[in-house]
Write a protein that binds this DNA or RNA. Structure first.
Lengths: 217, 217, 217, 217
DNA sequence: AATGAATGAGAATTCATTCAT
DNA sequence: GATGAATGAATTCTCATTCAT
């Protein structure tokens, strides 16, 4: 039916336009930050009228929200398949950890500028944002804890307060990636940084037990 | 002489008034965040006129700046005496680490609300803020690296990329303290959290070497 | 096409709105003077919102500028045709002078209140205004000098420092018109005033040469 | 008596301080104009406190007023002696005129910057200022008319509408001096300018009667 | 009397959001 | 549906004047 076809086309066009606005917002906010971005700049970038913006988003805040959602989805999507097969030894665990962080980092790197704004300004925009952002960390920490618990049970991780440790690891990873994106590790490639951090997470920086004094542990 | 005395008294009163305004700003910004704080609210809290604010600070941004400076000074001040005696073994190192982080945490805790705003909103306010904040982390990381290098040389820390590890540790500590202040460790007292993190930093979560390699699964 | 038509209509409406604002500014500034005029009063007079003003003018200064430009254009426009035919004798010269001044005076009279503000406050607003206003006098003086030079060459004006004299005449004319607009010649109609001034400019107030020297006292 | 002496000294000191403030105001207003001059700048220039200013002047406006009065007094003072001996022929008249204008010009020249502000901004400050300034012109015009009437009666000036002519002359003189102070006659020394203007005022720029056609006048 | 800190009414300007076309 | 002109509440900042010391 023509009408049916028409309706479909309309919906698609609408979808596309929303995407265009979202991309424009990503570009401008990535460049200037949320607070210094005017709606007029977003629509200028998108090539549409000021009023059109409000047909697709309730307000300025909502476009930031949508951007965050899009990113969160991307990040969390990286782990959907990971849960299938659990690591069977320390090596697999290590490799899986490196791979996981690298996936996040790659996703972040893809929209580097925007992600920085999302993470940095988010909490300042709104309490709801803050919670959402915290939620992401929590979910990642939960995932990490799940694997850590498994590793402890399986004997290739040291028994410890896994809630604390997994959160600490995620915090460290976030900080590391953020710092790397800020350009504070100029010489070091991201892969190396991640490996160093993972190795540190596995072994700590303390000298292996048994060196210092007696052999007791 | 009256004049001399008068001048002194005036200076003191001025100093005090500035302090009052600064404290008021800390309260209001701590409560509402920088962007949602009006100058009019700060002066209302301080009990002075709008114009008075502008006698002491060029604008809202500057008061935030001053607040950050005051805090940074407090934090970095904690370490002036620490550099005197270096740890002589792993235990001393651990204890010193716990103590240092606890000091920072205590300082942050004292102005809990404000510090959260400083750390979270700072980067969104201004590129200069971002740099200043990053500078604090860098300086702390530098300090950490100094001790870590010493520990490696002294044999009670494992040789590693100390630049990466020390930054990772600081990042972790910041994240941990921040999360704790956000109330995400409700049950756990701060001291325990810090000890857990320090232990993790020393030993990692990996099983002691020689264990993991086996085929258990 | 609708779009084409629409665009045209929009442009016209915009044009008109600008004109309305400009007229409103003329009214309010004419009544209260530039410094005592608030933007809020202009928009109230124009019947539009405060923000609308700033869509059309960068600030209050710019609207004053636009008003001045509009007036200058009007005044200088009076002389475009005059340059075609030069006077051929003293009578034509005199008549053309009277006519020219009368034209300016009529233009000034039309926006009496505004013109007074423009002329009086202009220099106080801004150095740029001062220059623009001086430029108008200079251009008129240049025009006057051109005619005076012609008259001298043609023998129906006395050889003199035409640069000084033409400026003096313009200065006198401005002062005269201004005083008349201030109401300081209540009884005298403007035409008579202008004729008197022109006659004075032609003959001076000195007694015809050859008379004065005598001993009468 | 000591008390008497003391009182006198006090009054003098007060007088002197007022003078200092007035001079400071003249300097700053001369440099920046009335509207762009802050009271704080005046007292800074005078080297006294903000509050002191208000001990000597009701408000900012009053200092401008005082400055204007001081100048008006100076200008009008130039003519107190002139009225004593009236010119007895055209030459004396001309010379007296040149001398009079030169006196005013010299007075203006002495406080060049300030006078420009007084004349230009005065009308914009206040309707009262405008009237006062107009009053000065009127009084000078009245004086001029008195001499012109005398000259006409004495036969060394042409019968004319002396009210119009004398005002025109004063207007011309003001405009001329102002333009000269603006630097628009760079090459020409003020004395020459004044002589040119006076000559023009005596003879006009028209060719001497009797040249053009017949001998009738 | 002198000082300069304190004041707050007032003015300009911005920009998210609405609305007429 | 799309457009962009219109809006005005909200906010910052200034500076003449007052007032405590």
């Amino acid at each position: 039916m023509t009408t049916e076809f028409r309706r479909q086309a309309d919906r698609q066009r609408k979808e596309r336009r929303r995407e265009v606005l979202l991309d424009a917002a990503a570009v401008v906010i990535g460049r200037q930050g949320y607070h210094r971005t005017l709606v007029s700049e977003i629509v200028a970038e998108a090539g549409s009228g000021q009023g059109t913006f409000y047909r697709y988003f309730r307000d300025k805040r909502e476009v930031f929200d949508a951007l965050l959602d899009r990113f969160v989805e991307t990040v969390l999507g990286q782990f959907s398949e990971m849960s299938v097969n659990l690591p069977r030894n320390a090596r697999e665990y290590r490799d899986a950890s490196v791979a996981a962080i690298q996936r996040i980092a790659a996703a972040a790197e893809r929209d580097r500028a925007l992600v920085r704004r999302l993470v940095q300004e988010g909490p300042a925009v709104d309490a709801a944002f803050e919670r959402k952002l915290a939620g992401v960390q929590d979910r990642l920490a939960g995932l990490a804890q799940f694997y850590l618990d498994h590793a402890v049970r399986s004997g290739f991780a040291r028994p410890c307060n896994t809630a604390v440790v997994s959160r600490a690891v995620i915090g460290m990873a976030f900080a590391g990636v953020q710092q790397w994106m800020d350009g504070r590790y100029e010489e070091l490639p991201l892969e190396r940084l991640i490996e160093e951090m993972v190795d540190f997470a596995f072994h700590g920086f303390g000298a292996p037990v048994g060196d210092g004094g007696g052999g007791a542990s």
